[in-house]
Simulated scan of single mutants.
Amino acid sequence: MVRLSRRQGYLIVLGLIFLFLLASSTVSTTAVIAGHNSNRPASVSLADVPVLNYHKVDALHHALSIPSEEFEEQMAYLSRNGFTTITPDALMAYLNHGKALPEKPILITFDDGYLDNFTNAYPIMKKYGFTATIFLVTSLVGHDERFMTWDQVRMMQQDGFVFGSHTVSHTPLTKLSREQAMDELVNSRKEIEQQLGSKPKYFAYPTGAYNLPVEELVKQAGYRAAFTIRYGQAGTESNPYALERIPIFKGQQTFRSFFVRLNAAPVLERFGLIRN
């Protein structure tokens, strides 16, 4: 029997993923029409939905900062390849009730609400006809020059951008008492409602930290779903209060990392290496 080193094993797995992606790229796709519960016919084949997770679009030397030109390269790739951005409402209607989605749906999200989301990401996304969902740290909006103002948030909202909660202070909820965590969830939701005229339905966990008690608090606070930083795609097997995303980071070869993380997720899930 031939024994393979760990490195050789990794290379073989990567090669298989590459070949699978190459083969998949030649196969035509059909519109995604599926569901999550008993309303869905058992014979319907379900497709998971990629949810990208960004933070900053600027020139800082930081893993969470994607330079504007590289962010545009990524948006151009999505546009060239026929992706259509969707809202969390559309995602949940698909997962729960089988509502139809565009042929290649993608949900783009940003955490924290940095000013560069407005000054840098917003114009690029408008150029390609895309929208995003931005999870706000409400104590920083309009109070810290590194973050957006409420007027800027409202301007983006008018162009179809969706805003959710990322708590009041960005403190990981797992480190707070039950009462403190509930205050973060409820007060951030109230502030967004007061500023934008409607209650936010969606939440993103600060630093990605969550557990079952925190999930239950998110439900009790009135949110319809919540997003983690756990790598993977959102699908009918996902917990709606622990939805997977594909975090996008800066690197020496940022676009290659973006390409691999976006395209590898469905392959890895199919092989049962993540979530499934």
Rank of each mutant, 00 (worst) to 15 (best):
E145Y: 02
E145T: 12
W150I: 08
Q152Y: 04
R154L: 13
M156S: 09
Q157R: 15
Q157V: 01
F163N: 12
V168Y: 11
V168C: 08
P172T: 00
P172N: 03
T174N: 10
E179Y: 10
Q180G: 09
K190G: 01
I192K: 01
E193I: 00
E193T: 03
Q194W: 03
Q194H: 03
Q194Y: 02
G197S: 04
P200N: 01
K201P: 01
K201W: 04
K201F: 07
P206N: 10
T207A: 12
T207F: 12
G208V: 03
G208H: 02
A209S: 15
Y210G: 04
N211Y: 02
N211T: 01
E216L: 06
E216K: 13
K219G: 06
K219V: 12
Q220G: 05
A221F: 08
Y223V: 07
Y223R: 09
R224W: 14
A226S: 13
F227D: 09
I229D: 08
R230L: 14
G232W: 10
Q233H: 11
Q233Y: 13
S238V: 11
N239R: 03
P240E: 13
R245W: 02
I246C: 06
P247G: 12
F249C: 03
K250D: 14
G251K: 11
T254C: 12
F255C: 14
F255L: 15
S257W: 11
S257Q: 15
F259T: 00
P266E: 09
